[in-house]
């Protein structure tokens, strides 16, 4: 049968995942670079910028940007792709209309040849 799935299975997987995450967290606390009980070494650093870190001269920006750089790796790796996409989204009405006309011509060509 197509697509056999039970919500109960997910619950088991989710609980196992939680246990694994907890164990991973414990392990990281024990063997991460922070061997200290207090201070910056105790923090587990996942991604993004450190919300508690104060950069001299930029105190006014402190801690408001927690979501901004989360996907930095992805956006940086695909920088050219995203730049090309952004360049196409000009916001000009004429561009919208010409895309519509091009789409119509393309669809009509395909349908007339192979349809």
């Amino acid at each position: 049968m197509f697509g056999y799935w039970d919500a109960l299975y997910f619950l088991f997987v989710f609980i196992i995942g939680l246990i694994l995450a907890y164990l991973l967290d414990q392990w990281a606390k024990r063997s991460g670079m922070g061997t200290r009980k207090t201070g910056p070494g105790t923090k587990i650093f996942i991604s993004s910028e450190d919300p508690d870190k104060v950069i001299p001269g930029f105190e006014h920006l402190e801690g408001h940007y927690t979501g901004r750089n989360v996907m930095w790796g992805l956006t940086y790796a695909l920088k050219n792709f995203f730049t090309a996409l952004r360049r196409e989204h000009t916001g000009l009405l004429t561009d919208y209309a010409s895309y519509l006309v091009i789409t119509t011509a393309f669809v009509m060509g395909v349908l007339l040849i192979w349809g």
Partner: peptide
């Protein structure tokens, strides 16, 4: 077939498919 092509492109626009999705984001 020509009519079908016109339907498809017009309705792709209305549904916001990709080359003609930009109005949707505005």
């Amino acid at each position: 077939k020509v009519a079908l092509a016109l339907f498809i492109s017009g309705l792709l626009f209305k549904s916001g498919a990709s080359p003609v999705h930009m109005w949707l984001a505005d």
